[in-house]
C-alpha cells in the first residue's frame, strides 16, 4: 500500500485486514514511517488507525522507521516480510511512508502494489506519471466522498492506456471511502484477482527472483558504503576536502578522486576499484 501522505493508507489497511480476517486468513502488517534526518528519531503513528485489530491474535502489526533508507521502506522491511512469511501469515500488508514520486522500493518488495490516491491528487498525476504511477498493479481513489473522484478515475484510466500493456493484466481502478469502509471489499477482491493472475502466468517465481536480486544489490550498496567509511581517518580527509571544494579550489568530482587516493595511500585498503566506486556515493 503506497501513496501520498494522508491518503488513507492506514485506514484502508485496517478495513482490508478486517475482511481478510472474516475470510479466515491471518494477517501481518508492516507499517513504515519516516525517520527524521535531523534527530534520528521517529513518530510511528500508523497504528492510530488500526486499533480495532490490536487484540486479534490473528493479526500482527509491526511499525518500522526508515532509519535513513530513502525508498519509502526501511532497510530491513524485506527481511521482516520474509520472517512473517516463514511464520505462516497468509497475507502480509506493507504500508510505505507517504511517498512522492521517487520512493518506489515497495514495487521490488511486494507481489501486488496498490497505489492509494485521493481526488486532490488529480493535479499531480502528470508529475507522478514517471514514478509512482508506473509501479501500480491496482489503483485506488480513496476519500471518494469528496469531489473529483470520478475525474481522477478517468485520468488514471487514460494514463493506463498510454502505459505499456502487459498480457493478462490491466490494473484495476476503483474508488473507496475507507473511513466508511466503502469499496474495500472490491479492493480485496481485486487483490486476490491479481494474485490469481500472478499464479496463472507463473509470475510469482520471477517476482521472487527479482525480489532477491534487489535485496542483493541493496546489500552491495550498503556494505560497500559502510566499508568505505569504516576507517576513522577518512572522515577527516572528507572534511578537509569539502572545505577546499567549498572554497572553490576544486570541484566535488576532484575532491572525490582525492578522497579515493587518500584512502588507498593511508593503507585504508580500498574495497573498490574505479568502476565499483561509482556505487559508493
Amino acid at each position: 500500500m503506497t501513496g501520498p501522505p494522508g491518503a488513507g493508507k492506514s485506514t484502508l489497511v485496517e478495513k482490508m485486514t478486517a475482511l481478510f480476517r472474516k475470510d479466515g486468513q491471518t494477517v501481518a502488517i508492516v507499517a513504515v514511517d519516516p525517520t527524521s534526518p535531523y534527530t534520528g528519531g521517529a513518530i510511528l503513528g500508523d497504528r492510530i488507525r488500526m486499533s480495532s485489530l490490536f487484540c486479534d491474535p490473528g493479526v500482527f502489526i509491526r511499525s518500522m522507521a526508515t532509519r535513513g533508507s530513502s525508498g519509502g521502506l526501511a532497510f530491513r522491511t524485506r527481511e521482516v516480510c520474509d520472517l512473517l512469511d516463514a511464520f505462516g501469515k497468509d497475507v502480509i500488508i506493507v504500508e510505505t511512508i507517504g511517498v512522492g514520486q521517487a520512493e518506489l522500493d515497495v514495487a521490488d518488495t511486494a507481489q501486488t502494489t496498490v497505489i492509494v490516491l485521493v481526488p486532490e491528487s488529480g493535479d499531480g498525476i502528470q508529475a507522478m506519471k514517471a514514478g509512482l504511477m508506473e509501479i501500480g498493479d491496482l489503483f485506488v481513489v480513496n476519500k471518494s466522498d469528496r469531489d473529483g473522484a470520478d475525474r481522477l478515475m478517468v485520468e488514471i484510466q487514460m494514463m493506463l492506456d498510454l502505459r505499456p500493456q502487459c498480457e493478462g493484466w490491466r490494473p484495476g481502478v476503483m474508488r473507496t471511502t475507507a473511513s466508511a469502509g466503502e469499496g474495500v471489499d472490491e479492493l480485496v477482491r481485486q487483490i486476490q484477482g491479481h494474485r490469481d493472475y500472478l499464479k496463472k502466468y507463473g509470475i510469482l517465481g520471477r517476482l521472487r527472483k527479482d525480489n532477491v536480486r534487489s535485496a542483493i544489490v541493496d546489500l552491495v550498496r550498503q556494505r560497500l558504503e559502510e566499508k568505505f567509511w569504516e576507517n576513522a581517518g577518512i572522515r577527516s580527509v572528507l572534511d578537509r576536502l569539502a572545505e577546499e571544494a567549498a572554497g572553490g579550489k576544486m570541484s566535488p568530482y576532484q575532491a572525490f578522486e582525492r578522497l579515493l587516493e587518500a584512502r588507498e595511500q593511508n593503507g585504508m585498503k580500498p574495497s573498490t576499484n574505479k568502476e565499483q566506486s561509482d556505487h559508493v556515493r
Partner: peptide, 11 residues
Amino acid sequence: RDAGMEVIYTG
C-alpha cells in the same frame, strides 16, 4: 522523537 527515539503512538 527529537531526542532520537522511535515513538510508537497508538492514539
